[in-house]
């Protein structure tokens, strides 16, 4: 149930992200769309790691080692999503830097006016 919910939500965000990437003209908006897209993917990843009625895979008093199996969510997708988020941040940072540089050279933020290279 929760997996399905998260996946639908994630898929919706992915579509919104793609829509933004394909239709927004403002470079920064496109970058934001990519962030939305990433978020959607991350949601799906988290959703896939969910185990029915599972809690965080951390050992403490309530969750001793013996109870772990069957009661915690999958730690692998969590680990993956962590990496994915960082990578997403890195790419966003680079995109923003590009946006700054493009603005200084082309004096515009519209992607439609940045097309001197073609054919």
């Amino acid at each position: 149930m929760i997996t399905q919910l998260l996946i639908i939500l994630g898929a919706a965000l992915i579509l919104v992200g793609f829509w933004g990437v394909l239709t927004r003209k403002h470079i920064v908006k496109i970058i934001i769309s990519f962030s939305i897209l990433d978020t959607g993917i991350h949601l799906i990843m988290v959703g896939i790691g969910y185990i029915k009625d599972g809690s965080a895979p951390i050992i403490d008093q309530e969750m001793p080692v013996s109870r772990l199996a069957g009661n915690v969510v999958d730690p692998i997708p969590s680990a993956l999503v962590l990496t994915a988020i960082v990578i997403g941040v890195a790419v966003t940072a680079l995109m923003l830097s590009y946006a700054v540089q493009l603005y200084t050279f082309y004096k515009t933020v519209s992607i439609e006016q940045i097309k001197e290279l073609k054919w």
């Binding site: 992915i14 496109i30 993917i41 990843m45 997708p77 993956l80 990578i87 790419v91 940045i114």
Partner: peptide, 25 residues
Amino acid sequence: HAYEAGFKYLIAGSIASAFYLIGVI
């Protein structure tokens, strides 16, 4: 032009990464 090309490359690369990541998970 390098900035222009780099930005386009970034866009394309990001879309490709998105595909890949969804597939992997």
